[in-house]
């Protein structure tokens, strides 16, 4: 993947798992991990360039700033880079799945754990073709 890959999750183990799986799946050679959503937001602001593309694998239930608040913040900031989001949650709550449809940058909703078939699915996703 030529785009940036950000992994945002308050659970250290999931971050390690997703990073290792992403590398093993040849999805991205060097994902950047964040334990707190505000830190990921700072990174996006600092690295905001017009031609840049960034994919974020975003957890929903996090303290301080949850996944929904994070996406609301991105929308308010009107950043220049193209940012797309894959929601990654352990929740199988249909309400969360329904809610995710209201965010334009969300291209997929994947239940944890992110395993090899999930990365294979994302590689085939039409919305992400320009990111590879």
């Amino acid at each position: 993947m030529k785009a940036n890959l950000l992994l945002v999750d308050d659970d250290q183990l999931f971050l390690m798992l997703n990073k290792q799986q992403a590398i093993f799946a040849n999805f991205h050679p060097n994902p950047i991990t964040f334990l707190k959503a505000p830190l990921a937001l700072e990174w996006l602001i600092e690295h905001d360039k017009k031609q840049d593309k960034t994919l974020i694998l975003l957890d929903i239930n996090m303290p301080d700033m949850n996944g929904w608040e994070f996406m609301d913040a991105i929308n308010k900031l009107s950043l220049h880079a193209e940012i797309l989001v894959v929601l990654v949650s352990s929740s199988t709550d249909p309400l969360d799945i329904e809610r995710s449809k209201h965010y334009k940058q969300v291209v997929a909703y994947i239940e944890k754990p992110m395993r090899q078939p999930a990365f294979a699915y994302l590689k085939e996703l039409e919305a992400l073709q320009s990111f590879f």
Binding site: F14, L17, Q20, K112, P113
Partner: peptide, 21 residues
């Protein structure tokens, strides 16, 4: 069940796959 139980379960599933691979 949806939010709390699934978190450790998802960890287990992810970890087991890493071992398998």
């Amino acid at each position: 069940q949806s939010h709390v139980v699934r978190a450790p379960l998802a960890r287990l599933m992810g970890l087991v796959e890493l071992l398998q691979l």
